[in-house]
Amino acid sequence: MNLVAKNPMNKNAWLIVPAIVVILCFFIYPVSWLLIDSFARPKWGIQNYEVVLGRFVYLKVLLNTFTISAGTTFWCAVIGYPVAYTMAHCSKRTRRLLIFVVLIPFWTSLLVRTFAWMVLLQKTGLINQTLLTLGVIAEPIALIYNRIGVYIGMVQVLLPFLIFPLYSVMLRIDRNYSFAAATLGAPPVRNFFRIYLPLTLPGLVSGGTLVFVSSLGYYITPALLGGPADLMIAQLIERQISTSGNWGMAGALAVLLLVVTAICLGVVHRIIGVKTAWGR
């Protein structure tokens, strides 16, 4: 097996050259410039970092960003887990239908979807109007320009990123594990928490990581659906550039986000990586 698998890998290494070129030109190069800018503009020194780390407002936005990302990841997991489970354990026809339904959001642009949420969620929007007409509520409820709006918009967009990695892990789990646990005396709930959930943890971690990391850089959705308290770091970076042309500050904020993200991922993989080490 090793002999067969290793040699072609080495011979065909050139296949990844295009990808490396793209990453070098469009990621490493601009990020390096941003890093340099954060120290070089407007003059050489660490003044940008002193501002970013010294002022409460910047740290508040950074905290916001992580809270919203963590919240989005949490809600994606809660909503996505049953969907992935159903997809992995239903008939072929239902599975095709579910995959289609989960993928539909990718066919429309992010901007259009976000505006659609605005139409639905605003005070005079479809949801409030329906609830008012039905007499469920007396006053319109605030579903937009606050944290709820941000979560609704982001969870809807990012859900597939959690569902698909989880689904692919669930597909590979042998049903006999649950059968075996049942014959050994495990009632359904304990069977799930002791056997099935731990076995799907790798999928949950990779899906959750995708959602979390994507959330960190979210811009349009929180900008359109959130309130002033839901400012995320991407919006702050955009403002530094578009309103004050402050490339140095923007760079410092971007680098800070990068560093903190890297630390977060490192911690997550440290904790969960050890737990899932059995998975070879």
């Binding site: 059968f179 075996a180 014959t183 005396g185 495990a186 076995l199 899932t276």
Partner: peptide, 20 residues
Amino acid sequence: LPPYKRNIGMVFQNYALFPH
């Protein structure tokens, strides 16, 4: 009775040992 109440031991073809 569901399987978890039958108190019957079973060895599966592929063993189904819990990998975690």
